[in-house]
Computed example of a mutant assay.
Amino acid sequence: MAGLTRSHHNAVHRLLRERLDRVELNRTWQQLHAHFELGRPAGRWLHFDADARRLLQRMAQDEWGFDPLEGVPDGSRREVAARAVDEKIARRRPDDDFVLVKGTLPAPLPPLAPGLSLRVALERLDSAAIAKVVLIENLDSFDDWEDYPAPPELAGSLIVYRGHRGLARGARQLLEGLPPSTRVIVFPDYDPAGLAIAAALPRAAALLLPELDEALLATGNRAHFTRQFRQARQLEDADLEGWQDEWQTMKRHAVSIKQQHMLALGAVLRQVPRR
Results as ranks from 00 to 15, higher is better:
Leu118Tyr: 09
Leu118His: 09
Arg119Thr: 09
Leu122Asp: 04
Leu122Tyr: 08
Leu122Arg: 06
Arg124Phe: 10
Asp126Ser: 10
Ser127Phe: 11
Ser127Asp: 11
Ser127Leu: 11
Ala129Trp: 03
Ala129Cys: 09
Ala131Ser: 15
Ala131Lys: 11
Ala131Leu: 11
Lys132Leu: 14
Lys132Phe: 08
Val133Phe: 04
Val133Ser: 02
Val134Phe: 03
Val134Ser: 01
Glu137Phe: 01
Glu137Arg: 00
Asn138Met: 06
Leu139Arg: 09
Leu139Gly: 02
Asp140Ala: 13
Ser141Asp: 10
Phe142Thr: 04
Asp143Trp: 13
Asp143Arg: 14
Glu146Pro: 11
Asp147Gly: 12
Tyr148His: 07
Tyr148Arg: 04
Ala150Asn: 05
Pro151Glu: 07
Pro152His: 12
Pro152Ser: 13
Pro152Phe: 08
Glu153Gln: 12
Glu153Tyr: 06
Glu153Asp: 11
Leu154Tyr: 03
Gly156Thr: 06
Gly156Cys: 08
Gly156His: 08
Ser157Ala: 15
Leu158Tyr: 03
Ile159Asn: 01
Ile159Glu: 01
Ile159Leu: 14
Val160Lys: 00
Tyr161Val: 04
Arg162Thr: 01
His164Val: 11
His164Trp: 10
Arg165Pro: 03
Arg165Thr: 10
Ala168Trp: 01
Ala168Thr: 01
Arg169Tyr: 09
Gly170Gln: 02
Gly170Ile: 01
Ala171Leu: 06
Arg172Glu: 11
Arg172Thr: 13
Gln173Ser: 14
Gln173Phe: 08
Leu174Gln: 04
Leu174Pro: 03
Leu175Gly: 03
Leu175Tyr: 05
Glu176Leu: 14
Gly177Asn: 12
Gly177Ala: 14
Gly177Cys: 12
Leu178Ala: 06
Pro179Tyr: 07
Pro180Met: 04
Ser181Ala: 13
Thr182Glu: 07
Arg183Phe: 07
Arg183Asp: 09
